[in-house]
Design a protein around this nucleic acid. Structure first.
Length: 269
DNA sequence: CCCGTGCCCTGGCGGC
DNA sequence: TGCCGCCAGGGCACGG
């Protein structure tokens, strides 16, 4: 499932391919994933040139002269760059055709992804306004103060993108392991030092994953033939034994999410 | 304001 | 072998 490193990998790969290209037409095969009126969506983008691709949290932001296209891949969304004469595949829900005959195709088997047009108030309205800072820019005291107000577990808190943006199920397990924090620990029990450890572990984990092209796990493969290698570096998620003490890992549902941890190295407080 | 629940989807897999 | 039913899960809507 695409988390921050996967989205960053897609962003970097896609930038090289689509910046400077102008949209000639848009074919929409599954309109529910477009949150805007379809005619408005199409009319807004046709004739426009992609200037840049940015990212905030797990959102991709296609930058045009006077507007933005916000895209969230959710579980299985991916982009393919192909010639327009290549056949239309099942699950290719939105196809952007450029002036030069190239196409950018959004593919999503489970149809969870969304796209929506934004104007200059992009960061002032949801969903981007609801995102917390990414760990790279997150102050320890800010995280500590947010966690103090919560009654839920640290696992749930770290999955909440308004607390900190960028971690999904896989990376939260990795960060808790590296920080020696039991994922069932109530968020308001954590110390300043824990928060510092969480931020540092998050930065290390995300940067390492980005440098390896993200994770390819379960059904998710990145776009354009890019295969992430970070899944080979995971410490606990999907594993059976603790890489530190060799004890069997515990697998629990926390906040409805499958959670892997070592109950010896990550003592519950 | 906070919390819990359910929904959106479909491919893959376990069980029989 | 085939079929059924459940599960995966990020973000959001909704109700208490």
């Amino acid at each position: 499932m695409p988390e921050l490193p996967e989205v960053e990998t897609v962003r970097r790969t896609l930038k090289e391919l689509v910046i400077g290209r102008t949209i000639k037409s848009i074919d929409i095969y599954y309109s529910k994933m477009i949150l805007d009126d379809i005619d408005y969506f199409r009319e807004s983008l046709i004739g426009k040139t992609i200037k840049d691709i940015n990212r905030k949290g797990k959102f991709l932001i296609f930058v045009f002269d006077d507007l933005y296209l916000l895209s969230h891949l959710r579980m299985e969304g991916k982009y393919y760059f192909k010639d327009s004469n290549e056949p239309h595949l099942k699950h290719e829900h939105v196809v952007f055709t450029f002036n030069d005959g190239k196409t950018l195709r959004y593919h999503d088997t489970r149809k969870f992804g969304i796209m929506t047009i934004r104007k200059n108030d992009l960061y002032d309205i949801p969903p981007l306004s609801l995102l917390g800072e990414e760990p790279f820019n997150l102050d320890t005291n800010v995280l500590y103060n947010k966690l103090q107000r919560l009654k839920k577990t640290i696992k749930e808190a770290l999955l909440d993108q308004s607390i900190m943006a960028g971690l999904g199920n896989i990376y939260v397990d990795e960060v808790c392991f590296l920080s020696k924090i039991n994922p069932s620990t109530k968020a308001n029990k954590l110390t300043i030092e824990d928060c510092s450890n969480i931020i540092n572990s998050s930065i290390i984990t995300l940067n390492k994953s980005i440098s390896l092209g993200g994770s390819t796990i379960r059904s998710y493969t990145s776009s354009l033939g890019v295969t992430g290698r970070f899944q080979n570096e995971l410490f606990v998620h999907t594993k059976t034994t603790c890489p530190n003490c060799k004890k069997d890992l515990t697998i629990l549902k926390i906040g409805g999410r499958t959670t892997y941890f070592c109950d010896k190295c990550q003592i519950l407080r």
